[in-house]
């Protein structure tokens, strides 16, 4: 398979680079995480059992 065929596939390649692990435990983008937690407190999650009739 050549690179053009690979790029057209619905299957991309994710290369593993564990040097990125340093970001895993860093408190990054905490304002966004706080927003998510606030959303949980105020409106909660959607009702995933409901499905739109179509």
């Amino acid at each position: 398979m050549n690179i053009n065929e690979l790029n057209k596939r619905k299957t991309p390649v994710v290369v593993i680079d564990n040097s990125l692990k340093k970001y895993k435990d860093m408190p990054l983008f905490q304002d966004k995480v706080h927003k998510a937690n606030e959303m949980l407190k105020t409106i909660g999650l959607p009702d995933f059992t409901k499905r739109k009739a179509k």
């Binding site: 057209k8 299957t11 991309p12 994710v14 290369v15 593993i16 680079d17 564990n18 990125l20 970001y23």
Partner: peptide
């Protein structure tokens, strides 16, 4: 590095690296 193959949409995008 080990390589994972994962399905995504067939649209132009950058290559991803992940831990």
């Amino acid at each position: 590095h080990p390589i994972l193959e994962i399905r995504v949409m067939n649209i132009d995008r950058y290559n991803l690296t992940a831990e």
